[in-house]
């Protein structure tokens, strides 16, 4: 998968959220977005996800214009803003319900994904009883369970302890080896430098390359 953002501008009302962004992203790499609150990181991810359209410019997925030739990237998993689940269902049941929408994976693969993020698939507790960290891991599981070609993670380390952060970093590397294109936004500069192949700095709606491996 290849994603090209070409001269993308996004305005809401009179506010310019993304200002002439041009980026090229490729499969098998992890891209980090760093920047202060309100700098446009989440908006950039929502734009790549197809959830919003640019005010001008274009987003191309493998050469096809997002929003015109396709509504959403064909294979995408995401955790943008807060992990959202049905509070009265167990973690496993939540993922099964989400997975049933595409019917690409079976229950065994869902259980395996839960184990990967250090959650017990047989945990009978409902999600409303989960801690913030458990909800975060469940959100990451939802994003990766269908082995999508594009993974978007907004603040994936939120509410995670050091072991959890290390595990997420390992998972991202495994997903990269599988060939996924991963974009993540994070405040934690150290985590970004450690896990990303390329880090972009987002500030005042402008995106600049900060470092590359």
């Amino acid at each position: 998968m290849k994603i090209d953002l070409i001269n993308v501008i996004k305005t809401i009302g009179k506010a310019v959220i993304l200002d002439d962004v041009t980026l090229s992203l490729e499969s098998g790499r992890i891209y980090g977005l760093r920047g202060p609150n309100g700098s446009g990181k989440t908006m950039l991810m929502r734009l790549v996800a197809g959830l919003i359209q640019p005010s001008s410019g274009e987003v191309l997925i493998d050469g096809k214009r997002l929003g015109e030739e396709m509504d959403f990237p064909p294979s995408i998993g995401m955790l943008i803003e807060n992990p959202a689940f049905l509070p009265n269902y167990t973690g496993l049941k939540n993922l099964e319900l989400l997975a049933s929408l595409k019917n690409e994976i079976d229950s065994g693969q869902i259980r395996e994904t839960l184990t990967r993020v250090a959650l017990d698939p047989d945990d009978k507790r409902r999600v409303r009883k989960y801690s913030l960290g458990m909800k975060q891991r469940l959100g990451i599981a939802a994003a990766i369970m269908e082995k999508p070609a594009l993974i978007l993670l907004d603040e994936p380390t939120n509410a995670l302890d050091d072991r959890g952060v290390a595990r997420i970093c390992d998972i991202l590397r495994e997903e990269r080896e599988r060939g996924a294109l991963i974009v993540m936004a994070c405040h934690d500069g150290e985590f970004l430098r450690e896990c990303s192949d390329e880090v972009f700095k987002v500030q005042n709606g402008r995106v600049e390359r900060e470092s590359a491996i």
């Binding site: 996800a49 959830l51 959403f72 995401m78 807060n82 959202a84 929408l101």
Partner: peptide, 17 residues
């Protein structure tokens, strides 16, 4: 509720609007 919680994003990205 789903718009507010973000569940909407999870679903529409899988099945379309």
């Amino acid at each position: 509720e789903e718009r507010k919680s973000g569940m909407y994003d999870q679903i529409v990205s899988r099945v379309g609007r």
